[in-house]
Amino acid sequence: MSESKLGIADYPLAERRPELVRGRRGKGLADLTLDEVLSGEVEMEDLRITPDALLQQAEIARDANRATLAGNFERASEMADLPQEFIMEVYELLRPGRAPDKTALEAAAARLRDDYGAERLAQFVEEAAEVYERRGLFTFRF
């Protein structure tokens, strides 16, 4: 990450700050070529967004007066390293009536915090647990 905050002058990063853009295994944009794909040097993993890139986009969004979009990118940056199954498992728990009570959501929040260091996501799930209890969403649906 750069020292000073990024802003709208740095956007689009791929054009204005290409040196900041890195794939999952550290490859720069210039390395992500067709030849490298054909030789097997570049795999799907190299074409995934990184937590850092999402934080960079969050900085730009905040500079563009889009704080809520920035918040989404920040949550996403914590999610970028989560296994897909776990993301979908928590999504399923957050849907109405899936969790029988708030303990399941609290357990998910604890895993997010303890196993993945995803503090924002943990708080977000805890917030949902509190709201669901208040609104009676822990009810049987199917």
């Binding site: 967004i49 990118f73 970028a80 009536g97 609104r135």
Partner: peptide, 25 residues
């Protein structure tokens, strides 16, 4: 709220999904 729940989601589950898409670029 009731339409939302019949749509089988909540604002938190949808926001989770929104972040999930961004997290996959």
């Amino acid at each position: 709220e009731k339409a939302f729940i019949d749509g089988d989601d909540t604002p938190w589950s949808k926001a989770w999904l929104a972040a999930a898409y961004a997290s996959r670029g």
